[in-house]
Amino acid sequence: MAVAFNKLVTPATDDYRTVADHSKVAIGIGVVGVALAMIVAAISLVAANDVGSGGEDAAQLLALGFGLETLAVVTIKVGIAVALVGILVRLWLRIESVKVSLATLRPTDHGNGSAIGDIETEYGAVTVSKTPPASLPIHKMARTMWFPMLVMGPMLVAAGVVTSVVWSNNIGTRTGLGAAGWTQGMQFLGEGLVLAGISFLLGSILASLREGGGEVQQALGLRVTTLKMPATAKAFVVLMMAGLMISMAQFGLYLYTLTFDTVAEITPWWAWLGPLRELGLALLLSGIVLALATIANVLGFQFSRIRSIAATGEWETSS
């Protein structure tokens, strides 16, 4: 299965001129998400008016709106994932272009480059080796996990829409309360899984940059210069794991509160479980910030290497 969905993030053809539709699909999915959110905003306005006019439909509308709103947010996040898949596909075509172009552009008269070992650069510590370094375990994990996360997440959110309908139709009853707990716990777990899928895709981008960089340098017969894992990347992994664990824990805690006998017992728990579930997503998003910052740093490092090879032909293997 891993091989099957790895095909999604590799180019269908070696022809770099081929147009892939990821961007259009990502924007299309995003537009659907925004449209859904506009419907939810309209539902909220109707609910607010209902409260103002002393009606009794507000709670029903808001329960339904909750389920649909999470669906809208997750729809756009799936669009983001598609955009990242598009970036991954194009990265491989770019790596091939760099390989082919540098072979032509590199001066024939060049020096030896850095010695084998570790050196400091303006982008952080790097390792100079004869062969490309092995994949990091976290990169292997990222490549295996992004797809299952992106499948399970939306499924949970969709199931949450169904339970939100049950919640909406049973306001003020024990069934409604149970459905409210399931909806909130399940949808935020689903959203957490989608964000984890996005994080794993960002990890896959970092893996591709690392592997691609090594591949290009090796193909040119150069010593392989690889950026060591920066602190931002380590913090990214920690935040992502913490966020995912909180997302799972909040789901379990919502289900636990449903074993309580009275609403009075449940209410204080739900008062902090709401922010806890948001905290889980917040940590995942914070990890994504650090992943993007790491990608920017790696890109800066790689451009400096490409520039150096094109200008001086340095980092040759044989002296």
Binding site: S23, A26, G33, E69, V73, I76, I80, A83, I87
Partner: peptide, 16 residues
């Protein structure tokens, strides 16, 4: 919530 959705859509466009 609507602001959040708009932000996420903006991020999609940034990635594109």
């Amino acid at each position: 919530r609507f602001g959040t959705v708009l932000y996420l859509f903006a991020i999609t466009l940034g990635l594109v």
